[in-house]
């Protein structure tokens, strides 16, 4: 028997022995689950194939002789045969070229990964889900949604309880504070609160029809307290004489003319979210990036807060 085969058998036996020992020594051993048996089968197959292949090529090296015509030039004494390319290799080479052309013209351009593409798909899927689940919610669920949007976007300025954090922004638990009313009466307002461009004049354009004169400081204080107090107390006559013409006798506003001064309305909140606001408290940026339903929900939540 050839020495080579002998070595092959010895090495195979040794490797199989190691395989047996390492599996038998592990948890579960040869009586373990199917994973152990599969591992053994794999190992046995690998060992036999490896030894078989190695023996084949070692024998080939020992017995093969080169033939064919040598190329003219040599590189540092190393020559090259002018043999034909092996057929299998040549076919694979041609197929690779074909595949390369396909990949270059169709494969990559059609299937290429794009981060922005994945983002767009994400957004589209989310919008679809939002549309299906939330587009038609009303009532308590809408208010709930408004609260969650409020806690994500609004609480950094208005506070978790919507109390305006000690006057740093508007307290949304009440419609208007006296200083806000006072500031608006003195300076006018053009916050596009109704989506129209109709501005409210400043104090130089506000007449008290009871006295027939421009509104005075005392009257401003009175009407500010009256409005902030939920339309009660002193100052009712000033309101009736000056403000009621646009804001209505009950202060509930008029469509396309003036906003509601008694309650928050969803339209009012949506308008503030769209345009932002600037007044005595400071400036509020617009929150245009919320979608229509989210704005409606915030409106419902805030209207509910001050109910």
């Amino acid at each position: 028997m050839n020495k080579l085969y002998l070595w092959g058998i010895i090495i195979t036996a040794l490797m199989l022995l190691f395989t047996y020992m390492s599996v038998a020594g592990s948890e579960g051993g040869l009586n373990g689950d199917i994973v152990n048996m599969l591992a053994v089968a794999g190992a046995v197959a690998l060992v036999i194939i490896t030894v078989f292949v190695v023996i084949k090529y070692v024998r080939q090296m020992q017995t093969d002789t080169a033939d064919g015509k040598l190329a003219d030039e040599q590189w540092d004494g190393i020559g090259e045969y002018l043999n034909e390319v092996p057929k299998g290799w040549a076919i694979m080479f041609l197929l690779t070229i074909v595949w390369g052309m396909w990949y270059f013209t169709v494969g990559y351009p059609v299937n290429a990964y794009s981060q922005i593409g994945e983002y767009n798909e994400d957004v589209a899927a989310h919008d679809e889900k939002f549309e299906a689940e939330y587009a038609s919610i009303t009532g308590d669920r809408l208010i709930e949604m408004g609260e969650s949007v409020f806690l994500a976007e609004c609480k950094v300025c208005h506070g978790i309880n919507a109390d305006g954090i000690d006057g740093k922004s508007a307290n949304l638990n009440q419609r208007l504070e006296a200083k806000v009313v006072k500031y608006v009466v003195e300076n006018g307002s053009n916050n596009q609160l109704l989506g129209t461009e109709m501005p409210m004049p400043d104090r130089n354009g506000l007449f008290n029809s009871n006295t027939g004169a421009l509104i005075t400081d005392a009257e401003i204080d009175a009407v500010a307290a009256y409005v902030a107090n939920g339309m009660s107390g002193a100052g009712a006559d000033v309101f009736a004489g000056t403000c009621a013409a646009c804001h209505g006798a009950d202060g509930k506003g008029m469509d396309f003319v003036a906003p509601n001064l008694v309650n928050f309305t969803p339209e009012l909140v949506t308008n503030v979210l769209n345009h932002g606001k600037k007044g005595v408290m400071g400036q509020m940026p617009s929150f245009d990036r919320l979608n229509a339903k989210q704005k409606e929900a915030v409106g419902a939540y805030i209207a509910d807060l001050s109910k």
Partner: peptide, 11 residues
């Protein structure tokens, strides 16, 4: 700059 304003930054 889109969602915070001067007075908020000040506070």
């Amino acid at each position: 700059g889109n969602y915070r304003t001067t007075d908020w930054h000040e506070n």
